[in-house]
Design a protein around this nucleic acid. Structure first.
Lengths: 248, 248
DNA sequence: CGCCTGGTTGAGAATCATCAACATCTGTGG
DNA sequence: CCACAGATGTTGATGATTCTCAACCAGGCG
């Protein structure tokens, strides 16, 4: 009951105290921004990146409608992006894990179109966009990589659109679990055992479901023997069946 | 019964026969790609743009998983983007009207992640991406404009996500109508009277609803006096009530 | 300890999907 | 120009999924 499975949490993959580590040494650099760069170009990028202090749970990386000045890479922990709709409701548009880039939504209008806040203790790298833009003009591979990241954001959003438009509650949950599983694996962590950093309410919000439905489906999947759910700790016992359920 | 309201169709705003018109003379240039450019820079962009022959209804601009080489600007008519999901279903991810850019989804993996086909007779400008990229490095305002367009795509997708996640069938339809109304207005056409280029099935697919539900809601809005629906011709009689219904 | 937030479970209600029948529109060939 | 066929759209009856409301439980923190 009281035991924690801390070894599987996503927020421990880099030491959060040593936030001065630079891009060349960062163990995330194979999935983060500089993937396409040569060593000496990484240093040039490294010079413009600002490493911020760890954020505590609930603290904002940036807020909707704030002037857009930077994009951010998650170093540890996790972040949710959300916007407040016309009628005051929250809509979560994405969850971001270590190595993932957030904030590109702000480029269009020089303002952030969503807010981003830490789901747990988290650290982010801040990359001033103006300087990134300047650097891009002299480093074509950086420009290309940056285009690629924005395009990935589009592809992801479109996947979510499909999920919301066509799939049942069960399929949505299964897909989210598989997505988090894949990201956990990308970080060299377990693909079958991980901790959900977000609340059930957040999951429901993101997937267009109510908390109750989310809760019921977790229970159902557990009863069916596909999952072992213990609060936020998830163990996927039958990942193939989960895949099938998600429609893959 | 037999009378057409052809004056309001979106596909007539430029002469589809004269597809050799260049960017400087194009009446869409204030909303299309070169918005941020000086006259002599527009010429440089103009040189790399290829104008294609008009597409007939159902013809593809590009197909999912084809190698990505170009982005496209709609000159006349309209286009839908869609992808085929794992289990063989179609999911429409967007509708594109004159002056709008499509194809940026392909940048990430050098392949198109969706297919795009003409909803009616349509003409598009093809912009080879490689040359656009090269030109971008010497024209910062073009690079910035291009970032902006990709970012807009993200913002739009996120709006659709919110729509699908939080809103009722009635609200989704109302929102789509308002979106098309706004785009019609941007093309200097009527904001209250326009022709829907897509089928009811397409609308349902895009909004995550069945055809029947779409049809019923059109009927309901007509009975309530908010709309005048005559097949694909829409007249918005009470646009403020539609706005309220959409939650704006 | 008790409060408060977050999560679970149940019963009933609402929305939307499904199935089915029918109407209308489009375009093709006579 | 008409007739027909297939596609597209409308309407109704029924049913399933998910939401809403409500009660209850568990864990974390002052």
């Amino acid at each position: 009951m009281g035991t924690r499975r801390a070894e599987s949490t996503l927020d421990n993959i880099v030491c959060t105290h040593d936030f001065r580590i630079n891009c060349s040494d960062c163990r995330l650099n194979s999935i983060c921004l500089p993937i396409a760069l040569e060593a000496h170009d990484i240093d040039r990028l490294d010079n413009i990146i600002q490493r911020s202090k760890p954020l505590r749970k609930g603290e904002h990386v940036y807020r909707e409608s704030e002037p857009f000045t930077s994009v951010f890479a998650v170093r540890s922990g996790s972040v949710k992006a959300y916007k407040i709709t016309g009628d005051g409701k929250e809509q979560i548009t994405g969850f971001y894990f270590p190595g993932e880039l957030l904030g590109v939504d702000g480029i269009a209008y020089y303002r952030h179109s969503v807010s981003a806040k830490a789901l747990e203790t988290a650290a982010v790298c801040e990359i001033p966009f103006k300087r990134l833009e300047e650097l891009s003009t002299t480093l074509p591979s950086l420009q290309r990589h940056f285009f690629k990241l924005m395009s990935q954001e589009i592809t992801q959003d479109q996947q979510l659109i499909t999920l919301l438009s066509k799939n049942s509650a069960e399929q949505r949950i299964a897909s989210l679990l598989l997505s988090i599983s894949a990201r956990s694996a990308r970080l060299k962590l377990s693909a079958t055992s991980f901790r959900l950093p977000m609340s059930r309410t957040d999951i429901g919000n993101y997937l267009g479901l109510t908390v109750e439905t989310v809760s019921r489906i977790f229970s159902r999947l557990q009863k069916a023997g596909l999952l072992d759910v213990e609060n936020k700790e998830i163990r996927m016992l039958e990942i193939d069946k989960v895949r099938k359920m998600a429609g893959i």
